[in-house]
Design a protein around this nucleic acid. Sequence first.
RNA 1: GCCGCGUUGGUCAAGGGGUUAAGACGCCUCCCUUUCACGGAGGAAUCACGGGUUCGAAUCCCGUACGUGGUACCA
Length: 507
Amino acid sequence: MSKVRVRFAPSPTGGLHLGGVRTVLYNYLFAKQHKGDFILRIEDTDQTRFVPGAEEYIFACLKWCGMEPDESPLHKGSYGPYRQSERKEQYRQYAEQLVKNGYAYYAFDTKEDLEKMREENKTAENPSPQYDHRIRGKMQNSLSLTEAEVNDLLTRNTPYVIRIKMPENEVIGFTDMIRGEIRFETGLVDDKVLLKADGMPTYHLAVVVDDYLMKITHAFRGEEWLPSAPVHLLLWKYLGWENEMPQWAHLPLILGPNGKLSKRDGAKYGFPVFAMNWTDPRTNELTEGFKERGFLPEAFVNLLAVLGWNDGTEQELFSMEELISKFSMERVHVAGARFDFEKAKWFNHEWIKKSAVQNYTLTVKELLGSAGISVTDEGKLESVLELVKDRCTLLPDFVQQSSFFFKTPDRLDVDAVKPKWTADKKDFFTAYADKLASLSEWNIPGLENCFKQLAAEKNIKPGDLQLPLRIMLVGGKYGPPVFAIAELLGKDETIRRINNAIVVIEG
RNA sequence: GCCGCGUUGGUCAAGGGGUUAAGACGCCUCCCUUUCACGGAGGAAUCACGGGUUCGAAUCCCGUACGUGGUACCA
C-alpha cells in the first residue's frame, strides 16, 4: 500500500475557526498514525477574497496546536508549489482535456445572462434555478452554439468559463469512511464552473487535480462539501484517474448555540471561535482566540478531538500522542456536535491540573507582567503556580490567584473581618506577629502550631482567626491554605502584612 | 422548492435486536475544608414522532416532523 498522504486545504480569507482546526487535527492524527505525510495546501483561487496575513496566521495556529505540516508553502516537499495561485497554469490543460472529451464545455454567459436566467426561471417551487441540463441548451455555450459561432467568440477573446457537463440520468456514489454508502442523481446537480473567466480553477477542479497530482490518499473535509461530491467523483472519472481517487470522509459540522457555529456566535455568547486572535485587516475587527483566552494548546486539541470522536472507553483526556495511536475515522460520530464552552473550560482546567507548571510558567509570567506585577524569582513563581493551579480554569485566572504572592494587596476586604473584629483578636494578631519573628521553623506545621498554641493561650477558637489571617495576607476570601501562603511569603513579608492589616482594620 | 446528511438527558456521548440505557460537562444535595477550589458520595433521561418486521426494537425497515448543509465564475 502506498504511503498515506492527507491534506488540509484552507483558503486564506480570515481566521481559523474551531471546525477548521478540528479538520486539521483529524487529518494530522490520521497521517501520523499511519506514518504518512500531512500536507498544507493553500487554496487561494479566489483572488477577490485574498486577505493579507491570513496565510501566516494559519501557520501560527498550526504551530501553536503542535501540528506542523510535512509539506506546505513553508515546508519543502516534492509536490509543490503548495499555493494554488502558483499552480494556475496546470489547471487549464485538464479543463481543456475535459472539453475535448465531451465532459465539459465553454460557456460565454455574462453575469447578467446568468442573473436573467435565474430571474426568469424562478418560481415558488424552484427559488434557485440551476445552470443544469435542462437550462444549458438555452444558454450561450459550446453545446448550444454552432462550432463556427463558438470559434468566432473565441477568436474575439470573449470571456468564457468551462463548465462540467453533468449527465442527465446517472446515479453515482462512493463510500464515505464515516457515513458509508452515499448516492446522488447526476441530473439534479448543476453544471458547475470548473475554470473561471480569469483562468483560475474553481475549488471543484483544483481539488481534484491537486489531490491527484499530490498523490493524496485520503481526503477529509467538512460535511458542507458532501453536496458537491458528485462533481468531484465525475471529475476523477472523466480525467481517467478513478483508480487513484482518495478515500473520502466528510466530517460532521460543529454547531453553535443555534445552527452552524459562526464567529458571530463567539461575540454574542462570549466565547472564542478562532484558534488565535484574528484582526481583520480591512475592518480592524478583532475576533478572540482560544490561545488568548487562556487555553493550553493541549486542552484545545483534546477538546476538539473529542467533539465528534471518542475511543469507546470512558477516557476523556488524551495527549496528542495518545490521540495519534487511538484515533480512528470509523469512530467519528455522524451527527453534528454542538460546541459547549463550559465543557471546553473543564478540559482546560484538567490540563492545567495535570500539566507540569513549567508548561505555562512563561505565559503566566507575561500575564502577571501585563497586570503590573514583575516576577524575578522564577523558582518562587513555579512554587506558587503549583500551589494554586487547582483553582485556575483559564490561564488568566492565575493573575488573581498568584498576584498577592508578589505584591502586597492594595486593598483588604475589611468588611469580611470588621463585623467580628474584637480587641482580643487584635491582641492575638499582634502577639502572633511577634512570635513569628522568632519562629525557627518557617514551614506550614511550624506556622500552624504556633498559631494554634497562641489561640489556645488567648482562648480564641482557631477557626475564628483563620479568615482574618487570610484577609491580612491575601486581601480577599480566596487562595490556597493560609499557612502555605505564609510559608511562601516568607517571614518578613508575613509579619509586615499582619501588622499593616491590624492598622487598616482598626482604622 | 429541490438535493444531501443527520436525530440517545440542557450539552458531549457509549451502546447497533433481549442492558437497571455507561460515562463526562453543567445543575442540585451532602461529606471534606470554618476562604475559594480540588477530591469524594448521591440526585434528576421510557433513546423526535407514527407505523411496520420480530417472541422481543434505542438498536432493522418505511413514513412524518424537526435540525443542518448545499443549491455562486466562494471555498
